[in-house]
Design a protein around this nucleic acid. Structure first.
Lengths: 235, 235
DNA sequence: ACAGGCGAAACTTTATACAATCTTCGCTCA
DNA sequence: TGAGCGAAGATTGTATAAAGTTTCGCCTGT
């Protein structure tokens, strides 16, 4: 049954079958295809990716460590359902880290990187124009990741990857109204500031961008869990 | 019934055997008993903790995700050996995050927490007086973790736990001279500022504390890897 | 004597089998 | 009719065995 699909010559990242699973699930979460609370059965995923449960389990544990999957003992893995308190923490952390990341990105700005950013902006615009919500939400997160890669700080990048993935779940759970064009203009403004090497402006725009995203959320205080149920059913 | 959704999903240091292994290895790294580059064989660890390789492997993968263990494909797990560039990133991140953490800790300061901090300070002093280097280095890291717990921000806490563990390896690798009494006075100063609820002073002292720790390191620029080897062998 | 290559041993990686646990469905009884 | 109980089914947790890779000693040829 196990087709020998893996000779040995592959890219260093994609060659790892665990990484393929992890990135597949992550992408699904980033594109809002996987909803919070969805059960991620080991056999199910294993069948999809043609892998044994050992590898699936490894991938799920990594995702749990990143905070986008909850593993409940003897019950299985589920897409995380961040609480409003989690959401506030995530965005506070982003407001702290990302202005600094932009700072470093400006230091590391090269023509190649600026071109990369520009191409990303056009990609975002195109996805929005054709109304591709999935691509839009994915690219919106990827923008921030791109700036973090540009900064060259691997630790900030690692932290931010985690924060972005959680943000995606948070936005899906708590956005007030559908806001497809939430931040494309903001992104363009940030890129403009980077191009001008204006750190103060870049920091300020990044900060207001994040503040605005959070302001679009409805983060009620869930003192009791049944409030959520009432909210879902009552309308 | 909905309140019962996560009965034990968040019990990091429970009777979980994987957690026991992970925390045992982490403690060994924090106390400088495990040196960078040490091989962590699966059989070896499994024998020590009376666990099968499956569980050991899970623990090692978690540690790898935290950046204090490197897993090399088909070769095994090794205690990480942070580069000087890593070290600079770690301390920059700490200088960014920890002042904010102290800020929140002041907001959350209660008599119970202040007492806890005070007890920690005396513990640190006692360990130093009796010349217990292992306990000293462990408690020094635990102080920062304690402040982060006090802040109540789980995300900052998670990030900082990772940064502290890596810092321990960095200090072991790059400290100029043995500095056992590196920061006990600083810690006392920070606690004093917290007690006075003086955020500006607390932030400033935390920042200078971290800056001083990094200043005690010798972070040469290793453009090539053989430089390190030459340094070790050539005296 | 030394460089190069073969081969066995040790280890990691992956898959599979078994055990423990939870969930679900049906049955009984008040 | 509804609650309580119990067994069957399904799913996860753990251990063990098979497969693949690297490493290191040893042997041969020059």
């Amino acid at each position: 049954m196990a087709a020998k699909t893996r000779p040995k010559s592959d890219t260093p990242d994609a060659s790892d079958r665990v990484s393929r699973i992890r990135e597949g699930v992550t992408a699904a979460i980033l594109e809002h295809r996987l909803l919070p609370g969805t059960k991620l059965g080991e056999d199910e995923i294993g069948e999809i990716y043609g892998a044994s449960r050992t590898l699936v389990r490894t991938a799920l544990q990594q995702l749990a460590h990143e905070g986008i999957v909850n593993i409940e003992k003897n019950r299985g893995a589920f897409v995380a359902r961040p609480t409003p308190a989690d959401a506030r923490e995530v965005f506070e952390a982003r407001r702290l880290i990302e202005p600094t990341i932009v700072d470093h990105a400006i230091d590391a700005a090269s023509p190649a990187w600026l071109d990369r950013l520009q191409r990303h902006l056009t990609e975002e615009r195109e996805a929005e124009l054709r109304g591709d919500a999935r691509a839009s939400v994915r690219l919106s997160g990827e923008f921030h990741r791109l700036v973090a890669e540009m900064s060259g700080h691997s630790i900030y990048l690692g932290f931010l990857k985690e924060l972005i993935a959680r943000s995606s779940l948070i936005i899906l759970l708590y956005r007030r109204h559908d806001t497809p064009a939430c931040g494309t203009d903001h992104h363009a403004g940030i890129v403009g500031a980077i191009r001008k090497r204006d750190k103060a402006a870049a920091r300020a725009q990044m900060l207001s961008h994040l503040t605005e995203i959070e302001a679009e959320l409805f983060l009620k205080d869930p003192s009791a869990d049944e409030l959520r149920l009432a909210d879902v059913l009552g309308v």
